Amino acid sequence: MFRRERSLPLRGSAAALCNNLSVLQMPARNLTHFGVVHGPSAQLLSAAPEGVPLAQRKLHAKEGAGVSPPLITQMYESDGSVMVYWHALDSGDASPVQAVFARGIASSGHFICVGTWSGRVLVFDIPAKGPNIVLSEELAGHQTSVTDIATEPAQGQDCVADMVTADDSGLLCVWRSGPEFKLMTQIPGFGVPCPSVQLWHGAVAAGYGDGQVRLYEASTGTLHVQISAHARAICALDLAPEVGKLLSAAEDTFVHIWKLSRSPESGHTEVEHCHGECVPDTQVCGARFCDPSGSSFAVTGYDLAEILRFSSV
């Protein structure tokens, strides 16, 4: 069971974007960083464990070299104090009425992968020291806009799928990261967007626009579990890797917690429902666990000027 804790006030509301909440726990400093997007800016909030907000910063997209903000991917230090790199997106053959954007971001080792409107995935190589970030390659596997990217550590194993990308058609591409990323398999869509994906122990968890959550084997694309989780489109998934908890949030105002387990006999993934939380009169657009054990989570909603927090009892 979870109970509502002290909420964190925001200086502005959250935009109606899927996965519109990021959480970074920093145990060494006893802090948790939260990030929310609204328009061309991002709000970063630091809070102590008891939920007391300590600092809040607003990042505005910076223009450079004649490039407008929507065409730029920018990277900052974790507290938003310093912009270390920016990259202008190539609009290519996009028509004047076609939106050009980056959507979906995840790290894999010393790489950061960013999805784009064209279906390409940009792979940036991040050095151990210094600001010499370079675009190392572009991955081609999607024909429609990328919606989300998820990764998990491969732990040094060869031929292990450790990244999954999703798009507006529902197609999932499963990759193996490395000096050169390799496409391992594709899981076909069925005409419904897949706004959010996660990876856990070689299983892909995908949330769809029809409220379904599906669990696949990453290496083969085999469907293990299908859950009618929500009444409306899913807007966020998250995983607590230490315990195998899956969080799903949707436009139906509900956040659900699921317990995942891998059967040692069959290797299949099994699911048990643990908790459901309603956020009344709110179009939920982001939800994340606040710690790897899944003992707390946070939620944002469209036109909601606060981050709601819940912890286990």
Rank of each mutant, 00 (worst) to 15 (best):
L17Y: 10
L21S: 13
N30K: 06
H38P: 02
Q43G: 09
K62A: 15
P69Y: 06
T73L: 01
Q74W: 05
Y76Q: 09
S81V: 00
V82A: 12
H87Y: 15
L89C: 08
S91F: 09
G92L: 13
Q98G: 03
A99H: 09
A106C: 14
S108L: 15
G109F: 02
I112S: 11
G119N: 02
I126W: 09
P127G: 14
A128Y: 10
E137L: 11
E138N: 00
A140W: 03
G141K: 04
D148L: 08
A150Y: 14
P153T: 08
V164H: 02
L172F: 12
C173I: 07
C173H: 06
K182V: 13
M184R: 15
L199N: 06
A203R: 13
G207S: 10
G211T: 01
R214V: 03
E217D: 15
S219G: 15
L223K: 10
S228N: 06
R232M: 12
C235M: 14
A240F: 07
A249H: 14
A250Q: 07
I257S: 02
T269F: 14
H273C: 07
G276P: 01
V279A: 04
A287F: 11
S295L: 11
T300Y: 04
G301M: 03
G301T: 00
L308G: 08
